[in-house]
């Protein structure tokens, strides 16, 4: 069984994000990057499926991102993935969901696939669109935000759960399909030391847009990011003081009505 897992390099969840002066992106200096946390669930689920099916099953990590993403791909290989494809091209900087999906679809078609796992969203731009566009492009079913996954014994379909307000939704899907993974699906394993040693010998195939047969960046998304803006500074806290509580309340109501205009 050929399992694809998608991995994106994103700023650390605890990093403080600042918008650059030009408003074209974030300030990257001194920022720490990690594997998108939801993609870790995808990698883990891919590994579990491979362990269950056995035989010559294989987990291939596919990443689109800058050169520096190599370290994170290597980490996924140390967790146990078998090999990886890394698409690196300066033209792909700040690529939108459509472009990303088009490039990933090309790679995934070339690699061949029985199932695709990815995170439910990347925690950097929170778009959560790539998996859906990808499903359309590859013309396969998708189940999003999965919290349970079970492969049928014949490996031809899967039963899934997604947590919704007040309950679970049960799904059954034919394979191949794309599954986006939610927290709770599994407990991602660590890159163990023996895993790290093995990962050194595993192959990361680097590809550019040209290698994939694209003459230019694939376009087709109809929405475009125009500008990035920092959040407005939160206002000063004002404490209303008065000798009598009643007067303080009156003043507060006046301020809410006349200054903040919320009443």
């Amino acid at each position: 069984m050929k399992i694809i897992t998608l991995l994106k390099r994103v700023p650390d969840t605890e990093a403080r994000i600042l918008i650059n002066q030009e408003g074209t992106g974030i300030r990257e200096d001194g920022l720490k990057y990690v594997i998108n946390p939801y993609d870790e669930y995808a990698i883990e689920e891919g590994l579990k499926v491979r362990e269950k099916v056995g035989g010559d099953s294989k987990v291939t990590v596919v990443t689109m991102g800058p050169e520096e993403a190599t370290e994170l791909i290597r980490t996924a290989l140390a967790m146990g993935a078998d090999d990886a494809v890394h698409i690196v091209d300066p033209l792909l900087e700040n690529a939108g969901p459509f472009t990303s999906a088009a490039v990933l679809a090309k790679v995934i078609e070339e690699e061949g696939f029985d199932i695709i796992f990815c995170g439910k969203q990347a925690i950097d731009d929170d778009m959560a669109q790539v998996q859906t566009i990808l499903a359309e492009m590859l013309d396969i079913p998708q189940v999003n935000v999965a919290t349970e996954f079970e492969l049928s014994d014949d490996g031809k379909k899967a039963v899934l759960s997604r947590r919704i307000e007040g309950g679970d939704e049960k799904y059954e899907t034919a394979l191949p399909a794309i599954i986006s993974c939610e927290k709770g699906l599994n407990e991602p394993r660590y890159a163990s030391l023996p895993g790290i040693m093995k990962a050194k010998k595993k192959e990361i195939r680097k590809k550019t847009l040209a290698d994939l047969g694209f003459e230019t960046k694939p376009q087709g998304g109809r929405a475009e990011i125009v500008r990035w803006l920092p959040l407005p500074k939160s206002g000063e806290c004002k404490i209303v003081e008065a000798e009598e509580l009643q007067d303080a309340v009156k003043e507060l109501v006046r301020l809410l009505r006349e200054e903040s205009k919320v009443l």
């Binding site: 370290e71 163990s192 030391l193 050194k200």
Partner: peptide, 14 residues
């Protein structure tokens, strides 16, 4: 090195 950073990260996360 890259390998050493991954080792350090595993140890830190654990």
């Amino acid at each position: 090195s890259e390998e050493e950073r991954i080792i350090q990260k595993t140890a830190r996360d654990f």
